[in-house]
């Protein structure tokens, strides 16, 4: 489903973010990518979303080289990938409802679908009563749940969660991870980057360990070993 083929990324200042990274992800997998800050986790995510281009190598999503997708077709690719970020990245001028509705509008869904699905998905992340709240009226955990709701509402094939618990307390961290597990149980592929040891050890799923831009371990039922 996803294939990184000898991907390297060297920035203009000669710092190496990724160094000859190769691995593949099967449909329905739950993968955690772990490593210290600066290990290259976020760059990896940006490569898959075509936010950045590799210096060498290719990234394939469903056999399409994502960096050869023309700009006007990029939306089609990105709608197959739901994204959740450490800093939530909600649209500050829109309510929780409107943030989620925006993802559906971008996917070309009808008003009827939006009206029925958005409250439903907000219920799923336990925010049914916060429909009309703006992001700055929500706690960090609540904002992250809105972001997850936005990522799943269009039923993408993959969800990328880049340090989704980085700004959350242990209770909210646990809740977010439970939601991601539930989504994975329903068949969606999950790629989670984190440096939270507790989260990784409790998941008991595949773990890719990165260090200084290289993949140093790839364990089927891994633990946080660094």
């Amino acid at each position: 489903m996803i294939y990184f083929d000898r991907v390297s990324k060297v920035y203009a200042d000669n710092s190496v973010a990724l160094d000859d990274v190769s691995f593949s992800v099967e449909p329905g997998e739950f993968i955690s990518v772990v490593g210290h800050s600066g290990a290259g986790k976020t760059t990896l995510v940006k490569m898959l979303l075509a936010e950045e281009k590799p210096s060498s190598g290719s990234v394939f999503f469903e056999s399409v080289n994502v960096h050869q997708v023309p700009s006007r077709r990029m939306g089609d690719l990105r709608r197959k990938i739901g994204t959740v970020f450490q800093d939530f990245r909600l649209l500050p001028g829109r309510t929780a409802y409107e943030n989620i509705a925006f993802a559906m509008e971008a996917a070309g869904r009808s008003d009827e679908e939006i009206q029925s699905d958005v409250p439903h998905v907000l219920e799923l992340v336990d925010l049914g009563d916060k429909l009309n709240n703006f992001p700055d009226e929500l706690s960090g955990g609540e904002q992250q749940r809105v972001a997850i709701a936005r990522a799943i509402v269009t039923q993408p094939d993959v969800i990328i969660a880049d340090e989704p618990t980085g700004n959350l307390d242990p209770v909210n961290t646990f809740e977010v991870v439970q939601i991601l597990k539930k989504i994975n149980d329903l068949g969606t592929t999950i790629i989670l980057t984190t440096h939270n040891k507790g989260v990784i050890d409790s998941l008991k799923k595949r773990v890719i360990t990165m260090d200084r831009g290289k993949v140093v371990r790839d364990d089927r039922e891994g633990k946080y070993i660094l």
Partner: peptide
């Protein structure tokens, strides 16, 4: 600009 960035990542077309 951040908002525009997020909209792009969510998969919205440039025109939209």
């Amino acid at each position: 600009r951040d908002e525009i960035h997020v909209m792009r990542l969510v998969g919205a077309g440039k025109g939209y």
